[in-house]
């Protein structure tokens, strides 16, 4: 089976700093892939390269077999890749319902139909405060709106960037359920960037570990957790 998303030797430099270094990654349909790594490993930069916010200096990104390297973000979104933001970019003047309707308008041109889809998505995520302006929502609620907004564009692939950060344990349990239902009920493939290990170990089928811009390990959660290179990257000790 061909991968849904294929990242081939992507490199992104900022001045003298190499943020992403010859990164390879394959994501297959129906998977939940966890992308982990210490701070500054280049995970968010890689996301930005895939979604078109950065043009990679080298390398290619293929989606459904098509070369999408360097296309503008809105075209990539239209092709079916949606994302959420590590640093939330909320619509504060709009209500949650309006914000998610903006996402739904990509595939549904009619306002009332788009609003209906937005309602479904907010219900799916489990957000009740849909008619209050964004500025009255908490950070956690913004993260859920962000997720619903991305889902409303009806993507085939969803990239989430630290949705679990800052969540309390019972909220993480709820998020685990939501992420699994996104894959099982909505048939969306996911790449999940996460620092919360409890969360990423529980949901991922496969984990890719990045360190200093490159992939250092790949495998099931158990394999990765016992990989000496991963332990070294995180804890900085020679584990031989």
């Amino acid at each position: 089976m061909d991968p849904l998303l294929k990242v081939v030797k992507v490199t992104k430099r900022f001045g003298g700093i190499v943020a992403v270094n010859k990164m390879d990654m394959d994501v297959y349909e129906g998977e939940i892939v966890g992308l982990i790594g210490p701070n500054g490993a280049g995970k968010t930069t890689l996301f930005n390269c895939i979604t078109g916010f950065y043009k990679p200096n080298e390398g290619k990104v293929y989606f459904k077999g098509e070369d999408i390297t360097g296309l503008p973000p809105h075209v990539i979104c239209m092709k079916g890749i949606a994302r959420t933001w590590q640093k939330v970019k909320p619509f504060v003047k709009m209500t949650a319902l309006e914000a998610v309707t903006v996402g739904a308008l990509l595939k549904y041109k009619d306002i009332s139909k788009a609003e209906e889809v937005a309602r479904e998505m907010l219900e799916f995520i489990g957000l009740k405060k849909i008619n209050v302006p964004g500025r009255e929502l908490t950070l956690i609620e913004h993260k859920f709106v962000d997720l619903a907004r991305a889902l409303a564009t009806k993507p085939t692939l969803l990239l989430t960037d630290e949705v679990a950060a800052g969540l309390r344990p019972f909220e993480i349990e709820r998020l685990i359920d939501v992420i699994k239902r996104i894959r099982d009920d909505l048939k969306i493939t996911l790449v999940v960037v996460e620092h919360v290990m409890r969360f990423v170990m529980k949901i991922s089928d496969r984990i890719i570990v990045m360190h200093q811009g490159s992939k250092i390990a790949e495998g099931t959660p158990e394999e990765v957790a016992n990989d000496p290179k991963v332990i070294e990257a995180y804890l900085g000790i020679k584990a031989i």
Partner: peptide
Amino acid sequence: YYLRAISEDEDAAEALGIDV
């Protein structure tokens, strides 16, 4: 809807498929 999204955050709007 699109214009209001753009005025709130251009990157977020772009990521939702809006040709800003």
